[in-house]
Amino acid sequence: MSSVTLSTVLRRRSDVRYRLIEGEAVVLRQSASEVLVLNEVGASVLDLADGERSVAEWIEALRGELEVDAETLARDVLTFAGELEDAGMLEVVAP
């Protein structure tokens, strides 16, 4: 169970490599030789995980791009951030 909250700050793990191909993100976690392909929104989230901005700030940044109500967006982003953390793609930055 992920402990990601709106105030959590996450960054991509150092062994994660990714590129944006036609709006999708191809993500490789080198240590596990695992590849993920994320859609446009997933790619945006990965891009936002810079170790500086909190999840709340990601949601704010995404709000202008997506036609979805705030509550749904927050819930989905939190869930997705937790999934990326569980998959070893993101790690929490200590406050």
Binding site: R19, E22, V35, V37
Partner: peptide, 18 residues
Amino acid sequence: MSLSRVIATTWRENLLFS
């Protein structure tokens, strides 16, 4: 979404990947 589909896209659209 699969990697093979992304690779196929790079072939089709001439997107330098490797």
